[in-house]
């Protein structure tokens, strides 16, 4: 135990740096994945996409069976090592739940709400922005929440391709069999994931409540 506290005290600056790297990679990946996923979800929910929808969801489902570790490794083959391939891999992984949930949320918008908006003279864009997206918001946030937890988890593996992050401590700990290093990486990673999940869960719940009162 004293090993552990000593190690933490000695490496506190480094832990902070790795945490910042971790949050940076995950944040950048999500900042790109969120708009892309949302747009994909909107496109898929459109009536004109009916023919290709099944095939696209099949491919997305297939994409999700490829383990995150493999996606990271394959990104190295295309983009080399460092934070760029790591971000791209995380982003590919995070887009799927966001697109899927945006689609589900938009499809779950009650038909009468859309009809009423149309009857009020709203155009397609107005309906999307003022009726459909707000009603689908809890689903979209739920997708973002899943994507965030995925990305934080896969971000811990990004260390293997030279992208830094909290995984550095975990893998160093495993390689050298140094439990204090494992814990120094594992505890903040777990806490980061739990905190993000909790925070986005609160937002999701608040939006759901707001939805019921309108």
């Amino acid at each position: 135990m004293s090993d552990f506290t000593g190690y933490i005290a000695e490496n506190i600056g480094m832990i902070g740096l790795r945490l910042a790297e971790h949050v940076g990679i995950v944040g950048l990946a999500l900042a790109i994945a969120a708009p892309v996923g949302l747009l994909a979800g909107i496109a898929l929910a459109d009536e004109r996409a009916r023919g290709v929808r099944g095939a696209i969801f099949y491919i997305l489902g297939l994409g999700q069976t490829v383990p995150s570790l493999a996606i990271l490794a394959l990104a190295v083959g295309v983009l080399g090592v460092g934070w760029v391939p790591a971000t791209v891999a995380l982003l590919l992984y995070a887009v799927i739940p966001i697109a899927r949930n945006s689609y589900t949320g938009l499809r779950a918008v009650p038909e009468p709400a859309v009809d009423a908006a149309r009857g009020m003279g709203m155009d397609r864009w107005g309906i999307l922005r003022q009726v459909e997206l707000p009603l689908a918001a809890p689903y979209i946030i739920a997708g973002l929440r899943t994507a965030t937890v995925f990305a934080i988890s896969a971000g811990a593996l990004a260390s293997l391709i030279g992208a830094g992050g909290l995984g550095d401590f975990i893998f160093t700990g495993i390689a050298l069999y140094k439990p204090e290093a494992m814990l120094a990486g594992a505890i903040p990673t777990a806490m980061l994931a739990l905190a993000a999940d909790w925070g986005l869960g609160r937002i999701e719940k608040r939006m759901g409540r707001w939805r019921r009162t309108t």
Partner: peptide, 12 residues
């Protein structure tokens, strides 16, 4: 919610 490699790191 705990990332898998972190759970391994905690459990070892």
């Amino acid at each position: 919610t705990i990332p898998n490699i972190a759970l391994f790191g905690l459990m070892i």
